[in-house]
C-alpha cells in the first residue's frame, strides 16, 4: 500500500535522499581535512577503516540500500510521471519551476554515473592517472586531480550535486509532510545553505589540488 502509492515512493526517496545528504556532509568535512596536511587526513582514513571498520560497513550498507531505493523509486516515479502526460504541450512556460527542480532527473542520472566514476577513481583506483596507493588518501587525492579533465568532471558533478540538493533537501522535508506555513517554492534558505556548502566544500579540494595550492 505505502510503496505502491506515488506518495509512498516519494517518501522513500525523501528519506534516502536525506540520508545521502547527511553522508555527503560528513564526507565533505572529511575531505576538507586535506588542508590540514597528509598526516591528518590519512589518520582520519585509518580511523574509518580500522578503528570503526564494522560501523563503516554498516554505514556503507545503509548508504548502498539508500542509493538503490532512491534510484529504483526515481525510475518508477519518472515512468509514472511521464505516462501521466502522453501528449505534451507545444508551448509550455514554467511559472515557478527552477533549474534545480527541472534538472532533478537528468542531474540525478549524471550523479549516478559520477558516483561510479568516483568509486573507480578514488576508492578502487581503477581509473587513476598516477599509481594508486591504498591507504595513502592524501597522495591519491593529490595525484588524482592533476589531470584537467578529471578535475572538470568533479567540478561539473558538484554543480549537479548542489542543484540536486537545493531542490531535493527542501522538497524532501515537504514530501514528508513537514509544513512550514506559507512557504514559497522559491524561498528556502536552509536548503540553499546546505546546497552551497556542499558545492563549495567539495569543489574546493579538486580545484585547490589542480591549481597546486595543495601538493
Amino acid at each position: 500500500m505505502f510503496w505502491r502509492s506515488t506518495i509512498g515512493k516519494k517518501m522513500v526517496m525523501s528519506v534516502t535522499g536525506l540520508i545521502m545528504v547527511g553522508f555527503v556532509l560528513v564526507h565533505m568535512l572529511g575531505n576538507l581535512q586535506i588542508f590540514e596536511g597528509a598526516a591528518r587526513i590519512n589518520a582520519y582514513s585509518h580511523f574509518l577503516h580500522f578503528t570503526i571498520n564494522e560501523l563503516l560497513w554498516l554505514l556503507r550498507i545503509i548508504l548502498l540500500v539508500s542509493v538503490i531505493l532512491h534510484i529504483v523509486a526515481a525510475i518508477q516515479l519518472t515512468r509514472i510521471d511521464r505516462a501521466a502526460r502522453p501528449v505534451g504541450y507545444e508551448r509550455k512556460e514554467p511559472q515557478a519551476a527552477t533549474i534545480a527542480s527541472r534538472s532533478m532527473r537528468w542531474g540525478g542520472l549524471a550523479l549516478a554515473l559520477f558516483i561510479v566514476f568516483h568509486l573507480l577513481h578514488l576508492t578502487t583506483g581503477t581509473i587513476h592517472p598516477v599509481p594508486f596507493v591504498p591507504g595513502d588518501v592524501y597522495a591519491n587525492m593529490v595525484g588524482g586531480f592533476q589531470m584537467w579533465w578529471v578535475t572538470l568532471i568533479y567540478v561539473l558533478a558538484m554543480i549537479a550535486l548542489g542543484l540536486h540538493i537545493f531542490h531535493g533537501a527542501w522538497s524532501s522535508i515537504r514530501t514528508l509532510g513537514v509544513n512550514r506555513p506559507k512557504a514559497r517554492p522559491t524561498r528556502r534558505p536552509i536548503a540553499a545553505a546546505v546546497a552551497v556548502a556542499v558545492w563549495a566544500g567539495f569543489t574546493l579540494v579538486p580545484v585547490a589540488i589542480f591549481f597546486g595550492w595543495v601538493r
Binding site: 527542480s101 509532510g177 513537514v178 509544513n179 517554492p185
Partner: peptide, 28 residues
C-alpha cells in the same frame, strides 16, 4: 495522475491561490 516533485507550478496556476502547503498536509 503523476506524482508531486515540488516544482510549484500548480500553486502558480491555481485560480484560487491554493497553497502547496495542502500537499505537505496530505503527505503528512
Amino acid at each position: 495522475f503523476g506524482g508531486c516533485t515540488w516544482h510549484g507550478e500548480c500553486q502558480e496556476a491555481c485560480p484560487k491561490n491554493i497553497s502547496l502547503d495542502v500537499i505537505a498536509r496530505m503527505n503528512h
